[in-house]
């Protein structure tokens, strides 16, 4: 069972629609037990970083997600859900994220002649071999964001070129992030969710 973490953010319903369409067993939940007992977790997110972290903290979920990550449960963060996997964001002042991957969230520079938000279909380039990223090389996926992640090259699976190189897929062990919306990226996006499902099925971890 994949648990989609339900914490009052925008795109939860569409993520569920995509998993249902793929026939992947899933549930929406904010219950710590259902999160810790899940085979895999999806952390969606739309909106502002601080509000999303506040929303997780109000439900006591930040330490639960950190515990799930430590236990090796595969976690997929989508869009803002990916950004809050990192240490710090500078959106509306400095806020602290989940700290599951080292890095920070900074504004997309507007002085490069690009429109912000970065909204639309952009082309992924693989930066390393990874089963989660391979299906995306050269493929377009759908992005909507004004901030992007700065992280070390070890964590970057693929990028898109938008004046700066924006990490589109990140990964540290069992923790994965898609900056784009796989649930809005047609067949390519659905394929990414299927790959995550495979990863969940093959995950090797023990619960204490």
């Amino acid at each position: 069972m994949i648990t989609i973490i339900d914490y009052d953010t925008g795109n939860t319903r569409n993520v569920k629609n995509a998993l249902d369409f793929l026939g992947v067993p899933n549930q929406l939940s904010a219950d710590p037990n259902e999160i810790l007992m899940a085979d895999g977790l999806i952390l969606p997110g739309v909106g502002a970083f601080k509000k999303a972290m506040d929303s997780l903290n109000e439900r006591g979920l930040a330490p639960v997600i950190q515990q799930a990550a430590d236990a090796g449960i595969p976690i997929l963060g989508i869009c803002l859900g990916m950004q809050i996997l990192f240490d710090t964001s500078y959106e509306f002042g400095e806020s602290t994220g989940l700290g599951l991957i080292a890095g920070e969230v900074v504004p997309i520079p507007e002085d490069l002649g690009v429109k912000v938000p970065h909204m639309g279909w952009d082309q992924n380039r693989s930066r390393k071999v990874d089963p989660l990223g391979d299906g995306f090389d050269e493929q377009f996926s759908y992005f909507v964001h004004s901030y992007y992640v700065k992280t070390t090259s070890e964590s970057i699976v693929s990028t898109v070129d938008y004046g700066v190189q924006i990490p589109s897929i990140v990964r540290k062990d069992n923790v994965i992030g898609f900056q784009f919306h796989p649930e809005k990226s047609g067949a390519v996006g659905l394929n990414g969710l299927s790959k995550f499902k495979e990863m969940v099925e093959n995950a090797d971890y023990s619960r204490n």
């Binding site: 629609n17 369409f21 990226s185």
Partner: peptide, 8 residues
């Protein structure tokens, strides 16, 4: 539509 079609 949103349950069957996965684009903006």
């Amino acid at each position: 539509v949103a349950s069957q079609v996965f684009m903006p």
